[in-house]
Amino acid sequence: MIKRILSIVPLIWALGFAAFVIWLPRPADGEKTDAIVVLTGGPGRIERGLTMLKAGKAEAMLVSGVNRDVKPRELANLTNAPIALYDCCIDLGHEAVDTRSNALETAAWLKAKKYSTIRLVTTDWHMRRARFELARVLDGQVDVTGDAVKSDPGFYVLFKEYHKYLLSRIAALVGL
Score class of each variant (00 low, 15 high):
residue 95 E to M: 14
residue 110 L to W: 07
residue 50 L to H: 00
residue 90 I to V: 10
residue 47 E to K: 11
residue 50 L to Y: 02
residue 93 G to V: 08
residue 95 E to W: 15
residue 101 S to G: 06
residue 41 G to T: 12
residue 102 N to Q: 06
residue 85 L to M: 09
residue 81 A to G: 05
residue 41 G to N: 12
residue 70 V to Q: 06
residue 109 W to M: 13
residue 59 E to P: 03
residue 43 P to G: 01
residue 92 L to T: 06
residue 87 D to K: 15
residue 50 L to F: 03
residue 64 S to F: 06
residue 50 L to C: 03
residue 68 R to S: 07
residue 109 W to I: 10
residue 42 G to T: 08
residue 100 R to Y: 15
residue 91 D to R: 00
residue 93 G to Y: 05
residue 119 R to Q: 08
residue 52 M to F: 13
residue 112 A to W: 07
residue 71 K to G: 04
residue 92 L to C: 15
residue 56 G to S: 02
residue 112 A to P: 14
residue 44 G to F: 01
residue 98 D to G: 04
residue 107 A to L: 06
residue 98 D to A: 09
residue 55 A to F: 07
residue 79 T to K: 07
residue 53 L to Y: 05
residue 52 M to D: 10
residue 62 L to V: 02
residue 63 V to L: 10
residue 39 L to D: 04
residue 68 R to Q: 12
residue 55 A to K: 10
residue 92 L to P: 13
residue 64 S to D: 04
residue 47 E to P: 13
residue 118 I to Q: 02
residue 87 D to R: 10
residue 76 A to V: 04
residue 42 G to I: 06
residue 58 A to C: 06
residue 105 E to S: 07
residue 66 V to G: 03
residue 74 E to W: 09
residue 62 L to T: 00
residue 85 L to N: 00
residue 60 A to Y: 11
residue 82 P to L: 09
residue 47 E to R: 10
residue 70 V to L: 15
residue 60 A to S: 05
residue 99 T to Y: 11
residue 116 S to Y: 10
residue 79 T to G: 02
residue 89 C to T: 03
residue 95 E to D: 14
residue 120 L to S: 03
residue 80 N to E: 07
residue 47 E to C: 04
residue 65 G to K: 03
residue 41 G to V: 11
residue 79 T to S: 11
residue 83 I to H: 09
residue 61 M to A: 05
residue 73 R to L: 13
residue 74 E to V: 13
residue 68 R to V: 13
residue 110 L to N: 01
residue 45 R to M: 01
residue 83 I to E: 05
residue 53 L to G: 01
residue 96 A to S: 11
residue 113 K to Y: 06
residue 43 P to R: 04
residue 78 L to E: 12
residue 106 T to Y: 04
residue 63 V to H: 04
residue 108 A to N: 12
residue 86 Y to M: 15
residue 61 M to T: 00
residue 43 P to V: 03
residue 39 L to A: 15
residue 48 R to N: 07
residue 40 T to L: 08
residue 85 L to Y: 01
residue 111 K to G: 12
residue 38 V to L: 00
residue 43 P to L: 05
residue 66 V to T: 06
residue 111 K to Y: 08
residue 41 G to S: 11
residue 67 N to T: 05
residue 77 N to I: 08
residue 104 L to A: 15
residue 78 L to K: 14
residue 92 L to F: 08
residue 105 E to F: 12
residue 63 V to A: 07
residue 86 Y to E: 11
residue 109 W to C: 07
residue 89 C to R: 13
residue 108 A to R: 15
residue 63 V to Y: 01
residue 41 G to W: 07
residue 67 N to M: 02
residue 37 V to Y: 02
residue 42 G to V: 03
residue 104 L to R: 15
residue 91 D to E: 14
residue 103 A to F: 05
residue 85 L to G: 00
residue 60 A to W: 10
residue 111 K to S: 14
